[in-house]
Simulated scan of single mutants.
Amino acid sequence: MRYFVRDGTLFIRGRFRAASTGVGGGIADVTTVLNHTVPHDFQEDPVRRLELITARHGIFRDYFGLLTAVDMHHLCVLQYDSVTVFITAGVSNPTPSPSTPHTINIIAYSREGMADAALLETIITATGAKAWALHQLGYDFPGTTTDAVVAACERDAEPMHTYAGTLTEIGRRVHEAVLFGLPEALAKQQGRVKREGPSFFIYSRYGGDHWVEWQKENCPYYPCHFAGQRCDYCYCPCYPCGDDDLGEWVESSNGGRVWGCADCTLLHTPEGADYMKRNPEATLAELKRFRERI
């Protein structure tokens, strides 16, 4: 899975099995899930708008799309082990009103395989967490009139997860990510938290289980590789790549094995980071070839 924001649109690219409640939703194999910002006075056909956006980027048919009036620099991305959740949120339309288009869009991705029933249950789990988060914030409604959820997993992975309710590991991760991330997304959209771009949170067990927002400006470990390194991809979009040239599987203190790549600087050189920004869907082999040329 790769994700990037371009021209007011979040693109999530890969080979997915996905379920969507958004425009043209359902259950399907897709290569792209996107969340696109529209103007506040948007009156166009949603299907047509998504067709134009995807065609402009060479994407045809096999995608699920969401629309929102929330700007993508208010996006919150939350990573909890194998689960990544993307949230944009605004709550100006708890009741029908064409002049207040803000909405809550949630995309939950798992790099582990899921049965179709688990994908559908992920939508229920995310919706329940959204309603509870709004309740805790003091809102008297469980969502807006235009909210949408997409649940996606790696298409080629074996279906490890049959269920995704809150008693399951994957459901608990989705629930916790939405419960924490929705208030953060609203705080950004409402101007109470100011960031120059999307926010990235990771669930950390170091020093006790908690969420951490990564900000390169305040990183206490800089420079962790070398002076002058670029930290745009501190949390690598290729992780876990499984390439023996770049890392190795190591035993986790919490049990199991995790991909260790502390010595990899593939995307930390200024040239490598810039190349990735220009070519966000570059394969690992392409990135390695580029490194050899510089």
Rank of each mutant, 00 (worst) to 15 (best):
V85M: 06
R172P: 00
K188Y: 02
A164Q: 07
E271F: 04
K188V: 07
W211H: 07
P46M: 04
V212Q: 10
C224E: 11
Q215W: 11
E213R: 10
T32L: 10
A151T: 03
C153E: 00
Q189W: 12
I106G: 02
W259C: 03
V85P: 04
L246I: 02
L246R: 00
I53L: 12
G26I: 00
D41T: 05
V38L: 01
D244V: 13
S204K: 12
N105C: 14
F16G: 09
D116R: 14
C241W: 02
L266G: 11
P39A: 06
K130G: 01
M276Y: 04
L246W: 09
K288F: 01
I87F: 13
L52E: 14
L267A: 03
T146F: 04
F60A: 13
V91N: 04
G255F: 01
A133E: 13
D71W: 14
E248Y: 05
F200D: 08
I202H: 12
E292G: 12
F4W: 10
H74K: 06
R289K: 13
P96N: 06
Y80C: 12
D245V: 00
T265W: 10
P159E: 06
A69S: 15
F226N: 13
G165N: 10
I106F: 10
G181N: 05
E44A: 14
P237R: 03
D62R: 15
H57D: 13
Q43K: 07
N105Y: 02
A148T: 00
A262E: 14
V250P: 04
M72E: 10
G8R: 14
C261I: 09
A129W: 11
F60L: 15
V258Q: 00
V47W: 04
T21L: 05
R230T: 09
G181F: 15
R291W: 06
R192S: 15
H102I: 00
I170N: 02
R111W: 08
R61S: 14
A129C: 08
L119M: 09
N35Y: 11
T31L: 13
N93A: 11
E281S: 02
T100N: 12
M1Y: 11
R278P: 00
Q215F: 14
G25R: 05
R13P: 03
T122F: 04
R173N: 08
H102D: 09
P101K: 15
A227D: 13
I170H: 10
F64D: 01
I87K: 06
C219L: 06
C264W: 08
G58E: 03
L267M: 01
E248V: 06
P220W: 00
G191F: 03
K277L: 09
D45Y: 04
F180S: 07
A187P: 06
A126E: 03
Y275I: 12
T283C: 08
F180A: 06
S110G: 05
A282S: 03
R172G: 13
I53T: 14
R48C: 08
F180H: 11
R61W: 08
R111Q: 12
G260W: 10
T144L: 04
A28F: 09
Q189F: 13
F141P: 02
L284G: 05
D274G: 05
V174G: 01
G90E: 08
T68V: 02
A262D: 11
A177Q: 11
A164P: 04
T265L: 13
D147C: 01
D45A: 04
S204P: 05
P270H: 08
